[in-house]
Computed example of a mutant assay.
Amino acid sequence: MLDTTPLTDAVDRLSDRLRGAPQSRLQRGVAAEALALARELSVRAQRLEGAGGEGCQELRIMPDLGVFAVADQLAVAAGDLAEALRTAPSAVELDEAVGSVERVAATARL
């Protein structure tokens, strides 16, 4: 079984920082970056679960629920991806997801 702790730990740290960020900082693009990351992680999870392929269900895109919801959206998307990785392990997919989270965390400057 693939250990997804690096992904969930990185997302937990970023989500906590987003929850503590002032509204003005979130509105200056940090929330948009986090939402893009949440959408990316969500799509990765759906693809691992078989969505989006020919004859399969369509990929669902995470909606924009506002700057104050993005931390929770990110946590949910990461949880879904972690579960998908447990059942269809892909170390490459895990490494790419952790890298995406770390890049957003580095540029967010929270």
Results as ranks from 00 to 15, higher is better:
residue 29 G to F: 08
residue 40 E to M: 12
residue 75 A to W: 07
residue 86 R to I: 01
residue 78 A to R: 04
residue 69 A to L: 12
residue 61 I to Y: 15
residue 13 R to H: 03
residue 64 D to L: 04
residue 97 A to L: 02
residue 8 T to A: 03
residue 53 G to F: 13
residue 73 Q to E: 04
residue 11 V to E: 11
residue 3 D to E: 13
residue 66 G to F: 10
residue 36 A to F: 03
residue 3 D to L: 01
residue 75 A to P: 08
residue 35 L to R: 13
residue 1 M to P: 07
residue 103 R to L: 05
residue 38 A to H: 09
residue 110 L to E: 02
residue 100 S to P: 07
residue 21 A to L: 15
residue 73 Q to P: 02
residue 54 E to C: 04
residue 50 G to N: 00
residue 37 L to H: 08
residue 71 A to N: 05
residue 4 T to M: 05
residue 59 L to K: 01
residue 107 T to M: 08
residue 38 A to W: 04
residue 53 G to H: 08
residue 62 M to F: 06
residue 54 E to K: 01
residue 83 E to S: 11
residue 81 L to F: 00
residue 33 E to G: 14
residue 29 G to L: 02
residue 55 G to R: 03
residue 9 D to M: 13
residue 57 Q to E: 15
residue 33 E to W: 10
residue 88 A to K: 08
residue 50 G to F: 02
residue 67 V to M: 13
residue 71 A to R: 05
residue 51 A to D: 10
residue 72 D to F: 00
residue 43 V to E: 11
residue 80 D to M: 09
residue 28 R to S: 08
residue 93 E to F: 09
residue 103 R to S: 09
residue 84 A to Y: 01
residue 63 P to Y: 00
residue 1 M to G: 10
residue 35 L to H: 12
residue 71 A to K: 10
residue 103 R to H: 10
residue 52 G to Q: 06
residue 106 A to G: 08
residue 17 R to P: 01
residue 43 V to H: 04
residue 50 G to K: 01
residue 106 A to P: 06
residue 91 A to N: 11
residue 89 P to Y: 03
residue 9 D to K: 14
residue 102 E to I: 12
residue 56 C to P: 07
residue 37 L to A: 05
residue 48 L to F: 04
residue 76 V to T: 06
residue 59 L to N: 04
residue 88 A to S: 13
residue 47 R to L: 13
residue 5 T to C: 09
residue 65 L to A: 14
residue 17 R to D: 13
residue 81 L to S: 00
residue 51 A to P: 01
residue 60 R to V: 13
residue 2 L to C: 04
residue 104 V to K: 12
residue 72 D to L: 05
residue 6 P to Y: 03
residue 5 T to Q: 15
residue 103 R to I: 02
residue 89 P to V: 06
residue 95 D to G: 12
residue 46 Q to A: 03
residue 50 G to Q: 00
residue 98 V to P: 13
residue 79 G to T: 10
residue 28 R to Q: 13
residue 25 R to Q: 13
residue 14 L to A: 08
residue 10 A to V: 01
residue 81 L to Q: 01
residue 92 V to P: 00
residue 62 M to N: 11
residue 61 I to N: 06
residue 78 A to T: 02
residue 36 A to H: 14
residue 40 E to R: 15
residue 29 G to R: 03
residue 88 A to L: 07
residue 22 P to I: 09
residue 41 L to Q: 02
residue 18 L to R: 15
residue 100 S to N: 11
residue 107 T to D: 14
residue 101 V to P: 05
residue 100 S to I: 07
residue 65 L to V: 12
residue 104 V to A: 01
residue 106 A to C: 11
residue 30 V to P: 01
residue 35 L to V: 10
residue 15 S to F: 14
residue 32 A to R: 05
residue 48 L to G: 10
